[in-house]
Design a protein around this nucleic acid. Structure first.
Lengths: 156, 156
DNA sequence: TATTGTTATACTCTATAACTATA
DNA sequence: TATAGTTATAGAGTATAACAATA
């Protein structure tokens, strides 16, 4: 059965669903991208109220879990260039979420450490992300989530 | 046993592996991002010799599979703004991979159609991507690839 | 009034290269 | 010579807003 709205859209050649994904649908990478984008959009929204973006959250949580990490080590952990880390660390330091401390014995490097406010914000973000993941993966059972996790790990 | 190189790195605090992923490792979204990035990097490399990027490839293959699609429809299919489509279509048209044809009865819109060269380049890209996927998913059996595909579809 | 395509503009993320100070 | 951090700059991708032509 074709609804009036469907017919109107079909007549105008204007339905989003009418576009054939074609060969794209046969690529597992296409499904991966769509799933990633779906999750990522909700992920962004779930962190927005805390003033965090993916890059700032990742950096903050790694610093919390690795006290006295250097900027170069952080760059490798985030898989970005050191020049990019400077901007993120500037931002986090400006918000007093982390501090740049001197390293005894190497005056080139900084030892990055989260402040109390930084640890608290990280914990709040983790809670927000747990709620986000529960929301986004609601259609999968515990077993299926574990299976997905395992398959993704095998790809990496 | 600790190798000389490992010891040197440990002494310098310089091993990439020494950074604790911490709570990040407990997020399925983190595994998804890493798997997506791994695949995406190889995907980019697999299209480079054809002069295609993800955006230009996606647009080209959708145009091939949907002759006479409009730019607005293409924008919805790619989930980007119409202004972005203009640039991609300009590029593909400049390389004579597609043509902008007039639509009888609506002088506002274009009907996009791939040229012979466009269809051939699309087919070559599909072959390159099939090789890329075989490479990237080599660690998974056919059944596991199907399982991954199904789980990703459920997330979308 | 609404839609199609277009232009101008800006923002985010990331990379490259050159620089300084230290090692 | 090599490394840690910094700065300046540029590129890709995308978004927003305003516009002309057409519906």
């Amino acid at each position: 059965m074709v609804s009036k709205a469907d017919k109107a859209r079909a007549d105008k050649g204007d339905s989003a669903g009418e576009v054939d994904p074609g060969v794209l649908a046969s690529f597992i990478g296409y499904a991966m991208k769509r799933a990633y984008m779906t999750i990522h959009t909700d992920f962004l929204a779930s962190l927005e109220h805390l003033g965090l973006r993916p890059g700032t959250f990742s950096a903050l949580t790694i610093i919390v879990d690795n006290p006295d990490i250097s900027q170069s080590q952080l760059a490798r952990a985030l898989a970005i260039e050191r020049s990019g880390v400077v901007l993120i660390v500037d931002h986090l330091e400006g918000r007093e979420l982390i501090g740049r401390h001197r390293v005894p014995g190497d005056r080139r490097a900084y030892a990055l450490r989260a402040t109390l406010a930084g640890r608290r914000l990280r914990d709040a973000a983790v809670e927000a992300i747990r709620r986000h993941e529960a929301r986004v993966l609601a259609s999968l059972s515990e077993e299926e989530q574990a299976a997905l996790r395992g398959l993704l790990a095998r790809v990496i």
